[in-house]
């Protein structure tokens, strides 16, 4: 009896592991097909433009708000948490480094994952279950080229730009708290921000953002493209897209930080 239960357990674990590798393999194939189709004509410029606006322009408010408050809270925490740092120099530096290296890319990534990843999964999922993706194929249009390539490229292009804007707004948030709440000297604060500013911090943040943009759009498209089973399947695809993209963003954030700063 006991050994039977044990075998059942092994069976379950084995299944989970196999499913995990199967899913990883499918995602890998999906990613490589997307990359291959990037180099095939025709390129759907109009769809690409529409996605740039959808991902970039319409995500601006959420990214601006989250980075603004992140910058503000970092300024406040640095001041209150470390009394020895409570002057213009350290606060400006901590705000600058944490916003550009970590907060702006991660916040923007997670926000866009919620907004864009979900909507892409829902849109492609609906197209799948209503046979619109099949219809594309019968109309001699490659669904990867028509649907997925524009979305993934727009994600890779737009996220770094969003993060650059987020950097500026986050630093402004820190500045506002520094000047109006902590009553620092404005010009000293700005001077300090300027001296500590390093290209590497900005570039690393934007590189992370490009990777996050790829992850978000790829997982949104992947989950939608292979969804099945009607409305419920589409709902499942949407959830999976957001959850898996958020987890991968945090994992890759660590890996990229290691690559940029720890080596």
């Amino acid at each position: 009896m006991k050994s039977e239960i044990r075998w059942q357990f092994v069976d379950k674990v084995g299944r989970v592991v196999l499913n995990f590798f199967a899913a990883a393999g499918r995602l890998g194939l999906f990613a490589s097909e997307t990359l291959i189709q990037c180099f095939h004509r025709p390129f759907y410029l109009k769809a690409f433009g529409a996605q740039l606006i959808e991902i970039g322009f319409y995500s601006l408010p959420v990214v601006a708000l989250t980075t603004l408050f992140s910058g503000m809270v970092i300024a406040l925490q640095t001041y209150t948490g470390f009394s020895s740092f409570s002057s213009e120099g350290p606060v400006a530096m901590v705000v600058l480094i944490s916003v550009t290296r970590e907060l702006a890319p991660v916040m923007a990534g997670l926000m866009v994952a919620g907004r864009i990843g979900a909507s892409m999964a829902a849109e492609l999922g609906t197209m799948r279950v209503t046979e619109q993706i099949d219809a594309l194929t019968t109309l001699s249009t490659n669904p990867f080229r028509y649907l997925i390539v524009p979305r993934v490229l727009a994600g890779i292009v737009m996220l770094p730009i969003l993060v650059l804007i987020g950097d500026i707004i986050g630093i402004c948030g820190g500045y506002l708290i520094g000047i109006y709440k902590l009553e620092f000297n404005a010009s000293t604060y700005l001077m300090n921000t300027w001296t500590y500013l390093q290209a590497m911090d900005i570039v690393s943040g934007m590189t992370k953002a490009a990777v996050f943009g790829f992850i978000i759009t790829l997982l949104g498209c992947y989950n939608g493209f292979y969804s099945k089973g009607g409305a419920q399947g589409v709902g499942q695809a949407t959830t999976n897209a957001v959850v898996s993209a958020s987890i991968l963003i945090l994992i890759f954030n660590y890996i990229l930080t290691e690559v940029f700063f720890a080596l």
Binding site: T130, E131, A135, T137, T138, S140
Partner: peptide, 27 residues
């Protein structure tokens, strides 16, 4: 080969992001 075949799906499978005439003229 597919470009020589026209298909009417059971569910019609119209592209709902495009207007009716853009659907018809898709190809």
């Amino acid at each position: 080969v597919n470009s020589k075949i026209g298909m009417l799906f059971q569910s019609a499978a119209l592209f709902d992001s495009l207007s009716v005439w853009e659907n018809v003229a898709f190809s």
